[in-house]
């Protein structure tokens, strides 16, 4: 379980996350949704120790993320942010292999190699495995980074907008894959999502944020309601039930 306790972050005078307290259950997929500037990404960055918090604390399975050693956390929790700029020239396989770094540093074992191949296979990356990252499209790169995070094989995997740059086919494939990671391997997946319909169809739990605070949380059925979403996004949203799925229409 990830326990978030009165966490706050301000940039200058602007408070982007206002004393958020939240418990993210272990197992399953939790999606964080909300309008731009709601503090979703900032919260995710603080949970994953990428960003220091001004106040409060975050416990991952009882480990305080600010005080626990980074290499210990790296075996428990992984994070993928939106833009991953790097200067090094790497192939896809090189990048995915870095996912094993927390375990074996510079001495990959046979087991590590098996993990790498499995992660490559999981994301359909075998044909691209020996291509350099800078030769790939945005979506292919995105999948390579997700493969690295899966290869890290942590109990908790956090993704900041993993569907960025992905076309429809790959976006739904990505969500199915995360679903599998949660169902078959018992991973806890936490996502920041922009598309609320993906959140509705694939999550177990949805947290809706607005103006730095948690506005609403619950099951997709509870969150995907006209009055809830309209309040959060400040725009007219209709909800339709299509084949057991709640779909928001806002065009």
């Amino acid at each position: 379980m990830i326990e978030i306790n009165d966490v706050q972050k301000a940039y200058g005078d602007a408070i982007v996350v206002k004393g958020v307290s939240l418990a993210l259950p272990k197992g399953g997929i939790t999606s964080i949704i909300g309008p731009n500037g709601a503090g979703k990404s900032t919260l995710l960055s603080m949970i994953s120790r990428l960003l220091p918090m001004d106040r409060g604390r975050v416990l991952v399975d009882g480990l305080d993320v600010t005080t626990t050693k980074s290499d210990v956390l790296a075996k428990r929790l992984s994070i993928l942010r939106q833009d991953n700029h790097m200067t090094a020239r790497l192939t896809v396989r090189d990048l995915v292999a870095f996912g094993r770094y927390p375990y074996s540093h510079d001495r990959p074992t046979v087991e590590d190699r098996a993990h790498v191949e499995k992660a490559l296979g999981f994301l359909d990356l075998e044909p691209l495995a020996d291509r350099f990252l800078d030769e790939l499209s945005g979506g292919q790169r995105q999948r390579a980074f997700v493969a690295m995070v899966l290869c890290q094989d942590t109990d908790y995997a956090l993704f900041d907008e993993p569907l960025n740059n992905l076309d429809m086919r790959h976006a739904s494939a990505m969500m199915r894959l995360l679903r599998r990671a949660a169902d078959e391997f018992g991973k806890t997946v936490v996502l920041v999502l922009h598309d609320i319909n993906f959140a509705s169809c694939y999550s177990d739990h949805i947290v809706a944020m607005r103006a730095g605070e948690v506005a609403f949380q619950g099951t997709p059925e509870a969150v995907m309601r006209k009055e809830v979403l309209t309040g959060i996004f400040e725009t007219e949203i209709d909800i339709h039930d299509i084949e057991d799925r709640r779909i928001a229409v806002f065009y």
Binding site: S48, S70, A74, M86, A88, P102, M148
Partner: peptide
């Protein structure tokens, strides 16, 4: 030496992989 290769992946990725940045 071995953390240098990880650092080259950028700050966020390096921290994710357990480097005390």
């Amino acid at each position: 030496l071995h953390t240098l290769d990880v650092l080259a992946l950028g700050r966020d990725t390096a921290i994710n992989l357990g480097v005390d940045h």
